[in-house]
Amino acid sequence: MSFLDTFFNAAVMARYAPDILRGLLVTIRLAALVVVTGLGTGLALALLRSLGIRPLNWAIVFVVDAFRALPPLIIIVLIYFGLPGAGWAPSPFVSTWVSLALVLMAFAEEIFWAGLTAIPAGQWEAARSTGLGFGQTLAHVVLPQALRLTIPPLTNRTIAITKGTALGSVVALSEILGAASSAVSNSYNPSPLTLGTAAYLVLFIPVVAFGRWVETRFAWKR
């Protein structure tokens, strides 16, 4: 009984449900932005890299390696607490968004690039011999094959990074976890955390299930 009162306290839940709901909307908005910008910039970098300009490629590889090596949380903290020293004070939302987008960009670039290079030279030659240009060959022959190769690893990576939206709570972003945490300290009751947990599961279990489906749908024979 007291367990239910503590963790599933209806009164507390009702009071803080609107906060959590607002947090849920923030999480969804943030996640959507991260996915779109992260994948977009990642693909752009991979395409840039396929142009084969040496110094540019070194720069790309370095940036990609850096954002793969750094824990996302330190990037968020660095942007939020560090950038004001350079005269720009991004909001918690922007700090979290930019950080996660950079991380996703790095992982996505690597995966897209691997996909692009997996397409044999013969495909390029065949297409170019029919008179297609570089861009046309890329767009109509190489990319469609490469994207298919990259879908399973990309999906799983995207899901993992999107879960990082919870890290925003560390820089006082009122997404689900942030909203739930402050509700817990205001109410001295963990029920908001229960609600928050439920919100995450409702949000991410379908996403994980989707990832599983994608993996089987696009499975390759070894």
Partner: peptide, 13 residues
């Protein structure tokens, strides 16, 4: 799947 869906920070908190 439960723990893949659970952001690790949420679990920790």
């Amino acid at each position: 799947d439960l723990f893949r869906a659970f952001p690790p920070l949420v679990l920790l908190i």
